[in-house]
């Protein structure tokens, strides 16, 4: 299943749970540098960026408890 991931950057707390979930699943290691979602901090702001390797599995959103990431199933087309 693929998901549409939507994000609200101002809700991001910088906890990196999204990166930990992504790298756990795909790098078999807790390794933010290997995650397909990047959280860049700029002063008091966080920027959420998805890399081209993101497979839209939604694990990142499942692990966000701050309401910064949410997922909705993508419609399957023939």
């Amino acid at each position: 299943m693929k998901y549409e991931i939507t994000y609200i950057q101002e809700n991001c707390s910088g906890c990196l749970r999204c990166q930990l979930a992504c790298s756990r699943a795909y790098a078999r290691s807790f390794q933010p540098s290997a995650a397909c979602i990047k959280i860049e901090s700029r002063g008091a702001e966080y920027r959420i960026i998805f890399t081209k390797d993101c497979v839209e599995c939604g694990f990142c959103a499942d692990n966000c408890l701050f309401g910064a990431l949410t997922k909705t199933p993508k419609e399957v087309t023939a």
């Binding site: 707390s13 910088g14 906890c15 990196l16 749970r17 930990l20 008091a44 408890l65 701050f66």
Partner: peptide, 13 residues
């Protein structure tokens, strides 16, 4: 208040 921030892995912040 501007925003909540958290230590790595913390869901409370």
């Amino acid at each position: 208040k501007e925003r909540r921030t958290a230590c790595v892995s913390c869901p409370v912040g």
